[in-house]
Amino acid sequence: MKKLFNLQWLSVLILALVLVGCGVKEDVKKEEASKEDQKVEETSYKVTDDRGVEVEFDAVPKTVVSLQPSNTEILFALGVGDKIVGATDFDTYPEEAQKIERVSDSVKFNSERILALNPDVVIAYTTGNDETLTALKGLEDAGIKVFAIQSATSFDDVYGDIQQISTVMGIEDKGEKLKKDIKAKIADVQAKVKDVEKLKNVYVEISPKPDIYTPASGTFQQEILKAANVNNVFADQQGWAKVSEEDVIARNPNVILTTVNYVEDPAAEIIARDGWNSITAIQNKAVYYIDTDISNRPGPRIGEAVELIAKAVYPELFK
């Protein structure tokens, strides 16, 4: 009887242990689930865009639509270009960007196609005008997260864009490194041109005859020219200045740079212009084409843009 009692007692003990064990497992599961929920809450974050809108993300975006070439370049430079599922017709750099589906011509975008792609976020741009903001609101009303960035007009704006995008993508450390790399590139170029005693006078043409336009003060290009230690002959003007042939001839630049890429041999066209043969740059054939995407795009290649200008104007310092 005692043996039987011991066996019965042992069975009860084992059953109790099993039940307690199950209870412990349930408690562990609940605790783990709670930690997981807390982890999800911790990954939720907010970033303020250039409209002043606080955009909330429950998790780091896995798919992105980019509506501006410079922002696409930033995403690739940050190492997350593979997350882009929609881009503009002008997203040509890097080469991988050319394979992304086109959803915009950089002015208007295909809302239906963007909705069909259902990205985690649309990184858009804004110039502050009502038409752009209205179009973006249409995407938001349809349930798409939109993060709008104002078009950069200075190096600091570019650094700010990189910071914002890297925060949205949850890679702030990579954003900081990219900014440091760009600044180091610019500093390296400036070290080569800092001892130039007499700055060369430079004219930059972004639109040819008959409507000639040049970047003046208050433009992104002016900051590039200044960083390259050259004198913009139209720095006394503001914004995108329309100038006459007589204006250019009178200012007699030492070097002429053109970013025009839609005419055949733009440098040769400038050299051959009637009445321009009195200009020092024409006489010395110091007229050069500068890659329009690098020099006009406020993105992660601004260091290269400064180097392009400096090399064209002071080639002897880069041998």
Rank of each mutant, 00 (worst) to 15 (best):
L4W: 07
L7N: 07
Q8T: 10
Q8H: 13
W9E: 12
W9P: 01
I14F: 14
I14T: 01
L15N: 09
V24Y: 15
K30C: 09
S34D: 07
K35Q: 11
T43E: 15
T43F: 10
D49F: 10
D50G: 00
E56A: 04
E56F: 06
E56I: 02
V65I: 12
S66M: 01
L67H: 03
P69N: 06
E73C: 06
E73I: 02
L78R: 11
L78H: 12
G81E: 04
V85I: 11
V85D: 03
V85Q: 06
G86F: 02
D89Y: 13
D89P: 06
Y93H: 15
P94M: 14
E95L: 10
E95H: 07
Q98F: 00
I100L: 06
I100P: 01
K108F: 03
S111Y: 02
L115R: 12
D120E: 13
V122S: 06
V122A: 06
V122N: 13
Y125F: 15
Y125T: 03
T126M: 13
L133D: 05
G138W: 09
D141W: 12
G143E: 13
I144A: 05
K145P: 06
K145Y: 06
Q150C: 04
S151G: 08
T153S: 09
D157Y: 09
Y159P: 04
I162F: 04
Q164D: 09
S166C: 04
G170A: 09
E176V: 00
A184P: 09
K194C: 06
D195C: 13
N201A: 14
Y203I: 02
Y203K: 10
P208V: 07
K209Y: 07
I212E: 07
I212D: 03
T214W: 02
T214M: 04
P215W: 02
G218S: 10
L225S: 09
K226H: 12
K226S: 11
K226F: 02
N229F: 00
F234R: 11
A235E: 05
D236T: 08
D236R: 15
A241F: 05
D247A: 10
V248N: 03
V255L: 09
I256D: 08
L257Q: 14
L257Y: 15
V263S: 10
E264H: 04
A267V: 02
A267Q: 04
E269N: 14
A272Y: 03
D274I: 00
W276Y: 12
T280R: 14
A281Y: 04
A281M: 08
I282D: 00
K285L: 09
A286V: 05
Y289H: 09
I290L: 13
S295V: 01
S295P: 10
S295E: 06
G299L: 01
G303L: 00
A305W: 05
Y314C: 07
